[in-house]
Structures are given as structure tokens and as C-alpha cells.
Amino acid sequence: MQTKRTIFPNKVLPYLLLVPQLAVTLVFFIWPALQAVKSSFEREDPFGFKTTFVWFENYRRLFADPNYLGSLSKTAVFATSVTVLAMSVSLLLAVAVSRVLRTSRLYTTLLVWPYAVAPVVVGVLWWFMFNPTIGIAPYILRGFGVDWNHRVDGVDAMLLVVMAASWKQISYNFLFFVAGLQSIPQSLIEAAAIDGAGPFKRFWTIVFPLLSPTTFFLLIININYAMFDTFGIIDATTQGGPAQATNVLVYKVYSDGFLGLNIGSSSAQSVILMIVVIALTAVQFRYVERRVQY
């Protein structure tokens, strides 16, 4: 790993500099993670007096549990929808902003602030807008003959959390797409224009392919976001319901552990989630390496 050509010769100082970060990491990250791995192989009796080592029993049960399998597929639907929706809307907006000159800063300011809104607040905003009793959206939808009620209809509930989660992520994707578009040399686009390509053709044949590093990076980030950072949105809108319709993995870990008090199962779920994050991080790092060669 890289360091400086010359380095300070001190022997003890670097350890002292590392102590705060390593201490926090070991106590609040590594140790709990190991605990999770350990208790994922154990079962507590109902009174919490005794724990027994049960090998992969918790995992086996998990994958035999229709609720968990349901949660897996709900998570897949949710993450895919959020990623596609949030990325396509923000790409459209980023391309539009890159076409305007004087007003681009104003539009950017108006589009980026949702990044700073807490997920749970996002949830409350959308829950308010879609409230079946007084919300504006169900009122308008009724005009079109649609009866919106995410409290009883699982599809409505899923649509609601997807919209809310995408809304929050637009600002983030937008900024990265804008940065990606700015890094494409103007001369290439001018060359394409001289070669007779119109604006739409230019976008699909020149801009979009050259944007692929950004797109790929955002793909990973968005999947990650949808899987792990949307707890607050779910908690404020549907709380996993109705009938498990929006009970995605990260919400289920919480509800099984803290509400259901099923430590073994919750730990096994934690471990599976960790494996997912590790896989996503690995993919992301391969991408970083590849980008270097660009």
C-alpha cells in the first residue's frame, strides 16, 4: 500500500494516532459483528437462561421460513424499483441541467437539498401526502377511479415506499451524473455534432456510453442505499406491512430482534446482510480498479 517516499522514523507515534479510531472500531464494529456471527449459531431458550450451540439451524430455519423468503423477494423488488426509478429520473434531470447555461445553478440548488432530509422525515412527508383519509394524492387518484389505500393494499404500500425512497435519492444521483457529464470532453460531443449526430443520437451513442463508469458506480450505491438506508422510510410509512408486503430485510432484522426478541434468527439475518454488503463492496472496489484504467 502506498505511503510517502520518505516517512517519519517514529516507532510509537503512529500507534498512538491510530488508537482512537481502532478503539471505536473494535468496540462498536468488530466485536458486535463477531457477536452476531456467534449468536447466529446459537439458540436461547424462551426464558433466556440457556444458550445452546445449534450449528446452522438458525440459517436452515430462516431459509425454510416463507416470511423470510417473502422478505427476500420484497427486498429484491424494492431495491430494483428504487434503483431504476431514482437513477432514470436523476439522469434525465442531470442531462437537462447540463443543457441549460445560466439557470443551471438555480436548478441544481432546487434539486439537491432532499439529500439532507432524514429518511424518516421523507417517510412522514409521503405518508402525509398519501394518507388515505386526508392525503392529496388519494383524493386525486379517486378522481381517476383509483382507490388508494396502502394500509390494506400491499401493492399500494410497495409503490409508496418505492416513491418515497426514490425521491430522497434523486439529489444524490443527480449530483454524480452532473459531475460525470461534466467530465466528458466537450470536443467529443462537438465532433459527433460535426459528424451529423443530432442531440438524441449524440446522447445514446456518445454521452451514455462514456457515462457508464458513473452509472455503474451509482448502481451499486443505489442498491446499497435501498437495502440499508431506507429503514426510516419504511418505519414511518408502512412498518413492513400490510401483511409483510414491505417487510424488507433490514426492517425484518430490527423487528425480529427488538420486537420479536428472536436473537438467533435476527443474528443469522444480520450475518446474511453483512455478506451482502461485503459482496457489494467487493464489486464496488473492482469497479474502482477498473476505472483507473479508463
Binding site: 500500500m1 481502532l22 464494529f29 459483528a33 438506508d229 427488538f258 444480520s270 446482510l273 454488503v277
Partner: peptide, 22 residues
């Protein structure tokens, strides 16, 4: 470096129970 790096892979949501216990 790796110990620090690993924190990337452990968002609080996935290790919620044991961290709470600590």
C-alpha cells in the same frame, strides 16, 4: 488499514442487536 476498512461493510442496521447490547 483493514480493520478500518471493514467498518465500511458493517452499517449499524446490520449489526443492530449486538451493538445495542455492547
Amino acid at each position: 488499514f483493514w480493520v478500518i476498512f471493514i467498518t465500511l461493510m458493517l452499517p449499524v442496521e446490520v449489526r443492530i442487536m449486538p451493538t445495542f447490547k455492547v
